[in-house]
Write a protein that binds this DNA or RNA. Structure first.
Lengths: 168, 168
DNA sequence: TGAATATACTAGGACATCCAATGGTTGGGC
DNA sequence: GCCCAACCATTGGATGTCCTAGTATATTCA
């Protein structure tokens, strides 16, 4: 990215909100905008780490999920639910992973509507190496104060629960 | 989205990390994944609020930025820097906003390389109405505990500064 | 002054996401 | 036993983001 700005653009936006009579919602606006920007920064780091493996974050998430599955396979709709993305995104990711020889599609033994996804040997190996890279290059030095990490997990966990992601 | 899951999928992932010998980075991994998911939820709310106005979040951000510009116009590279997105994203957004009659392009008076973006009357009106809708439907009840909002602003502000977004 | 470098925007391609619509498959209610 | 609503995966279209490359204009410097 370019040169650092001389002032925090989100703090600027917050001031603008306050000057226009929206002081009551200025702080939440700033927090939400900050989350947007933080996600963008983190995603860029992750994508950059995964690039040498030929993976995007979306495809990595699917590989990682499969690598933790007890049976080694997962129905597509389960993957969609657990990763909280639309079924079409799973279809898209599986298409590319399958073309790359990292996963296989197979029909569900009893339910003809369902398709199972399974890691190939190459997929399992790549998932391990990509996870090691993410741990080393992103998660081990995330840029948060260690004490703040627990704050974030608690605050965002409550938010996600309120939003209906999961139950208490 | 579907039914709430019975357990927090990010807490599950954290457990998986710990069981595989990556306990030292499990917490940051969980925090980062939670930011990704939180951004997704918030973006969906924002897009849903903006949809009746024919706006996306990217285009709204540009309209809002222009509405706060002193001169009422902004060079495209300034918009790119302040919104922290790729110049091509600005080109894309301006293309669509211009086609919708919400902004105009004009040449910079002294620098022939630069293009200025300016709100039309319709653009200024729509920006006001869209902001009012976001304030009412998203920012006024963001789903965070009021005390947590300040925590978030502080934690994410420090992160963004460390990441080189702006200077102290 | 004239060439080399830097800057600003645009064009085309890859990827991910969502939505709406389609075609199979299941399973419960009658 | 049959039918229809619910479910599953896929396709096609729209949007946004980034990357690479290309064109035009400015600026710097020998």
């Amino acid at each position: 990215m370019g040169t650092p700005l001389s002032r925090d653009p989100i703090a600027e936006a917050r001031r603008n909100w306050e000057e226009h009579g929206w002081a009551d919602v200025a702080a939440p606006m700033a927090a939400i905008t900050a989350i947007m920007r933080t996600q963008q920064i983190l995603l860029a780091r992750i994508e950059s780490t995964l690039k040498p493996f030929g993976l995007t974050f979306a495809r990595y998430e699917l590989l990682a999920l499969l690598s933790f599955a007890r049976k080694g396979s997962l129905p597509m709709n389960k993957a969609s639910a657990l990763l909280q993305v639309h079924p079409t995104s799973i279809t898209n990711a599986v298409d590319r992973l399958e073309r790359a020889g990292l996963v296989d599609r197979s029909p569900h033994p009893t339910d003809g509507r369902t398709t199972l996804i399974e890691l190939t040997t190459a997929g399992r190996t790549l998932a391990k190496r990509a996870t090691a890279a993410l741990n080393a290059e992103v998660f081990s030095a995330p840029g948060f104060d260690p004490g703040d990490v627990d704050h974030l997990i608690r605050i965002l966990g409550a938010f996600r629960r309120n939003a209906g992601d999961f139950e208490a």
